[in-house]
């Protein structure tokens, strides 16, 4: 996709985001979210983020990311371990990027 094709995506997602966030606040005032739906929505962040993360850390360029040039899987596991231990966004980012660079330097 070229950037020219990407602009409409920005516009549609912007409008969609605003509509979802305004939904019950401004557009459907007085209505309530049915309880089962509320419960389902509660699982979206965990499920969607995990679905985004797992393939991106496991694979790179269509191959398992375990090569000396792209040791993303190991760097991702290091970030996961730190994240489970510290629950700190910056620590996950720092350790993940640092581990990627360090492993490349050690292996390459």
């Amino acid at each position: 996709m070229s950037e020219a094709q990407f602009w409409p995506v920005i516009a549609i997602v912007a409008l969609g985001t605003w509509l979802v966030r305004s939904s019950f606040l401004a557009l459907l005032t007085g209505r309530r979210l049915p309880r089962p739906l509320q419960e389902l929505l509660g699982f979206i962040p965990a499920a969607a983020l995990a679905a985004l993360v797992a393939p991106a850390i496991l694979m790179h360029g269509g191959e398992l990311a375990v090569s000396s040039a792209e040791p993303r899987l190991f760097a991702g596991l290091a970030a996961l371990a730190v994240g489970l231990w510290r629950r700190d966004l910056l620590a996950v980012l720092g350790v993940g990027m640092g581990a990627l660079w360090l492993l490349r330097w050690l292996l390459g």
Partner: peptide, 16 residues
């Protein structure tokens, strides 16, 4: 580009 999945990973772990 690796920073993107790392951010998602951090957000995921914070919310579990």
């Amino acid at each position: 580009d690796f920073a993107v999945p790392l951010m998602f990973l951090g957000l995921l772990l914070l919310g579990l």
